[in-house]
Amino acid sequence: MNELLEIRQLNGFYKKKQVLTGIDLSIAPGEIVGLVGESGSGKSSLAKAILHAGIRTEGEIRLTGKAQMIFQDTYHSLNPAMTVGRIMEEPLLIEGRLTKEERKQRVRDMMGHVELDLTLKDRYPSELSGGQRQRVCIGTALLNDPKLLIADEPVSALDVTVQAKVLQLLDRLNAQDGITLLFISHDLRVVYELCNRILIMKDGRIIEQGSDEEVFMHPKEPYTKKLLSAIM
């Protein structure tokens, strides 16, 4: 199968500091890949490298199609001066192909798709709950028609009951629309629940990878075992 994302021998630098070392990674269309690591492991740097945002890279990154990203801090991910409807319309405005009516219709459809009540269209981000805001972020990202969605700790700031629902949404989007997902998290439990393949990062390297069952049931690296023991 043609890979959606291929990374070969990638080194990444932030200012003078090397934050990524010898990363090899390929993601096939339709996969949900979990990227696990603690703070400073380089997992967010890898995301930035894929998006060419603020990380200087050596090596090869091949991405077919567009990538979009959603973040942990839902409050700062949405422009506080715009209404939900306006925020979600933005990618369509930038693209500039659709008429005003078509744009409005696409936004309405997408709101339904990510299970947002249509009455929230005229609210500002500060008037929404964390879970609702994350849905707006996901919907906006999807309106841009990405092949790959990178989610950087998208549920870490949410309450557990809300967390579960957002995870279900991501899972459904993958199953229904075939969105490929790179899911970054420090929380192995969440990653295990959602992902088919898991990568463990430490100190800028991918130290272990495999299917979810392999990594959870038969971890090879001592660090992975330590991570697992912390949550078992």
């Binding site: 990538a67 801090d73 700062h76 991910s77 506080p80 001066a81 933005e90 693209e95 841009n144």
Partner: peptide, 27 residues
């Protein structure tokens, strides 16, 4: 800010980001 990052990822140009996205927030 993350919201600026995400419109940048959508392909918004500098002028659009500066005057449509950032300006209203410093009003």
């Amino acid at each position: 800010m993350d919201y600026v990052q995400s419109v940048r990822l959508m392909g918004a140009g500098a002028l659009r980001i500066m005057f449509i996205h950032i300006l209203p927030n410093i009003r």
